[in-house]
Design a protein around this nucleic acid. Structure first.
Length: 772
DNA sequence: CGGGGCGTGGTTTTT
DNA sequence: CCACGCCCCG
């Protein structure tokens, strides 16, 4: 049976585990996705489960798609019967199917983060809440956090009056969402969780159905996601399928958005996991790279424990470069990239990684000046573009007119004489009648009433005209009727926007085909769908509607599905110019990717590890995991760099090199610049002394910049230079951040890291030069 | 209603 | 430094 060919013993063991809960600790590059997909294929091929008995959960659409693609190449099986998708995608499906039980309209719509924020702003304004004291962003964070922990407004423990008020506002927000028939991302999961918890027959149904639940990137799950999985897997209820969790605690880098690595240990304990398999054979990187990763991550406490190994040789050493400035660092990257290309490494196999997006500019500039093509990851996604969101808003109103966010977005766009004044009146009317803006329009009188009434008529007639049309046609008509195309046609720079809008017809066509709606599916639901929706299965009439071949189509209209798709899958980032380009991205977005050659840049205290990580619990550990992720992206060549001087937020900063250099194995490294010894962090677990480690030189103005330039070129007659690394008998090692006075009476300000910032008289202090 | 001017704040990101 | 939000003016 060729399915299992070429698996190593651990992979084979994982793939063929009995139907019990299992935890697979899958190191970077250990064939994690392969194990997941092969297990699904094996379970089906050996007849242990039907496709409908499989649920596989991922975090990103990309991962879900990848899984589906690989699976269909392994198995001649219709993958539609399986529930493979993101947490949010699967919850969406569940809630559409049981929308009545979940107390949602079938056409409920999903707010993206942008919509959620604007809705909260609107609410705060309407309630006359002091936005200094309760910023919309804070409240949004508060609400999402509570939901991610599974808490409703009433469950939140408020310790002070601010929290108490926020909890009240959370409640108002939820009510408003309910009125509008919209849910935010976190709500999607919380609703699904509450639905299953409340409805026993329904829960039992799904517990019996999904014999195997497989979870990817388990270390990234938040509490709510874990609880949802527990519910589905029938934890504590003696039924339900086996939970197969794949993850890597060392690659947990999303604590800041609620991910809880502790879920891995919790899972082991809660499910009494007997099958723990470690995939430690790495198929990606050469030895020196892997040694570096292993050595670094061993500095973290609280690990499940894992050491990657490779059959590949040591390969090349990890190259380390100390640049004098961010500009020079960028230049060095270009020189190295050019020589890599001369060696035959393709541009798209070269990645430049950085901790924060702000670092990309200097590198982009240098690449541009050098005429090297490059791609920056993480731009605006297709469905987030303003013009596309406008078109979507029209469609949203046609499907659910009570979506106030959509209403406000386009009620006067393109302009139709409905000003702020009219909107305000409408909002007051809606407030007093406790209805949506759309529903409040009939209460409006006078000129404003007429204009608003015409807008309503536009939406209604567009709906009426298109209800028998296939989705792509519907989109085409809406683009015309909304006059969006005409509007952008009159704009100077409108051509690109028009193209984006027209792409939506194509996106709809593709969606309809891929999701199995059939191009001629009517917008309204057929009789089969009517039977399928609601609570048919709990009536026990023997119909398992969820095994239908195209569940999405039986449960929601093409339009509703397309709108959900637009919210849940923001689409590709900006059309990347040319495939053959050097790849620029943050370390976070590099997770899951691999390249022949990788540059990890800006390895300086305060940047990487980032200064704000010191404030958070286990923050530096998370930064270290981030560094671990960065290192393990490289196949053959790995470069690391740091600078003595960097421009950030309009200020020149002098940072010490990252403590992570002290955590790498000497034998695997090659210092391209003279070695600077710093070990003031050695043996220290963490520090809160960030201000000691980072010195900001105020100097956006040229005069000061020149001074610094002069001082840092040894042209000051002291023999010392700003940015230079020195060693002191008592204070240890540090970096000169400023020099004052002339030769003979000069004093230097030196950042001794943990020992603090000192000003020393250069004629008295015994300083030793380190490195160059 | 749109644009220019001013003020502020500025990890990481997916859904 | 620079991007974004807000406010005021034409």
């Amino acid at each position: 049976m060729n399915l299992l060919d070429n698996l190593n013993p651990e992979q084979l063991a994982a793939v063929t585990l009995p139907s019990q809960s299992a935890l697979i600790l899958a190191g970077a590059g250990s064939g994690k996705t392969r194990v997941l997909t092969t297990r699904i294929a094996w379970l089906i091929q050996t007849g242990q489960v039907s496709p409908a008995g499989i649920m596989a959960v991922t975090f990103t659409n990309k991962a879900a798609k990848e899984m589906l693609t690989r699976l269909s190449s392994m198995l001649p099986v219709n993958t539609r019967g399986m529930w493979i998708g993101t947490f949010h995608g699967l919850c969406n499906r569940l809630l559409r199917t049981h929308h009545r039980d979940a107390a949602l309209p079938q056409t409920f719509q999903i707010l993206d983060s942008q919509d959620q924020l604007s809705m909260i702003k609107r609410m705060l304004k309407a309630l006359n809440v002091d936005d200094e004291k309760y910023p919309a962003k804070d409240l949004m964070y508060f609400i999402n956090n509570a939901k991610d922990r599974g808490q409703r407004a009433g469950d939140v423990e408020a310790y002070d009056h601010v929290q108490k008020r926020m909890a009240e506002l959370y409640d108002v927000y939820d009510q408003q969402c309910q009125r509008e028939g919209v849910v935010d991302f976190a709500e999607l999961l919380l609703r699904a969780y509450e639905l299953l918890q409340r409805n026993h027959p329904l829960r039992q149904h799904y517990q019996m159905r999904f014999r195997h639940i497989l979870v990817d990137e388990f270390q990234d799950t938040n509490d709510l996601q874990y609880n949802l999985l527990k519910l589905l897997a029938g934890h504590g209820e003696q039924r339900g399928g086996a939970l197969f969790a794949v993850g890597d605690d060392d690659q947990s880098i999303y604590a800041f958005r609620g991910a809880n690595v502790g879920n891995m240990q919790a899972f082991e304990r809660d499910f009494e996991v007997k099958n723990l398999i470690k995939l430690e054979q790495n198929y990606r990187s050469h030895g020196n790279i892997l040694d570096s990763a292993n050595h670094l991550i061993s500095n973290n406490a609280k690990r499940l424990g894992k050491n990657l190994r490779t059959d590949a040789g040591l390969g090349e050493p990890v190259r380390i470069y100390e640049a004098s400035s961010d500009l020079e660092e960028a230049q060095w990257i270009i020189d190295e990239a050019k020589s890599l290309m001369a060696e035959g490494v393709s541009k798209s196999e070269i990645a430049v990684l950085y901790r924060s997006n702000a670092q990309s500019r200097v590198i982009e500039h240098a690449l541009f000046a050098a005429g090297l093509p490059y791609t920056v990851y993480g731009g605006l996604r297709y469905f987030q573009r303003a013009e596309v969101k406008h078109a979507i808003a029209y469609l949203q109103l046609m499907d659910n007119p009570h979506n106030d966010s959509a209403f406000l977005r386009v009620v006067n766009f393109p302009t139709r004489g409905i000003g702020a004044r009219s909107i305000e009146q409408l909002q007051m009317a809606a407030e007093s009648y406790r209805v949506s803006l759309y529903a409040a329009v009939p209460y409006m009188t006078g000129k404003a009433g007429t204009a608003l009434g015409n807008f309503v008529k536009l939406i209604e007639s567009a709906r009426f005209e298109t209800q028998q049309l296939p989705l792509p046609e519907m989109v085409r008509v809406v683009l015309e009727r909304s006059t969006l195309l005409a509007h952008y046609g009159n704009e100077k720079e409108g051509q690109e926007r028009i193209e984006n809008l027209q792409q939506m017809v194509g996106a709809a066509t593709q969606f309809v085909q891929e999701e199995g709606f059939g191009t001629h599916a009517p917008a309204h639901l057929g009789p089969q769908a009517a039977a399928a929706s609601g609570t048919a299965i709990v009536d026990g009439d023997g119909i398992d509607v969820l095994d239908a071949d195209a569940p999405l189509a039986t449960v929601m209209s093409p339009l509703s599905a397309f709108l959900a798709h637009a919210s849940l899958e923001a689409g590709d980032a900006q059309a990347q110019a040319g495939q053959e380009a050097i790849q620029l991205m943050t370390v976070h977005s590099a997770k899951g990717l691999e390249f022949d050659a990788v540059f990890i840049t800006g390895l300086e205290e305060g940047l990487f590890p980032h200064e704000s990580s010191a404030r958070e619990m286990d923050g530096v550990d998370e930064e270290r995991r981030l560094m671990y992720v960065a290192i393990t992206r490289a196949r053959r060549r790995l470069y690391m760099s740091f600078t003595q001087q960097r421009m950030l937020h309009g200020q020149t900063r002098f940072n010490m090199k990252s403590r992570f250099f002290d955590e790498l194995p000497e034998h695997a490294l090659k210092w391209l610049t003279p070695r600077v010894q710093t070990n003031w962090f050695a043996g220290r677990k963490s520090t809160t002394a960030w201000d000691d480690a980072t010195f900001r030189e105020g100097g956006s103005d040229n005069h000061i910049a020149k001074q610094i330039a002069q001082k840092s070129t040894s042209g000051n007659g002291t023999g010392w230079r700003i940015g230079e690394s020195v060693s002191h008998a008592r204070f240890g090692e540090g970096v000169i951040v400023n020099i004052e006075g002339g030769a003979g009476s000069a004093r230097a300000q030196i950042n001794f890291g943990a020992a603090g910032m000192k000003v020393l008289d250069l004629s008295v202090a015994k300083l030793e030069r380190i490195g160059r």
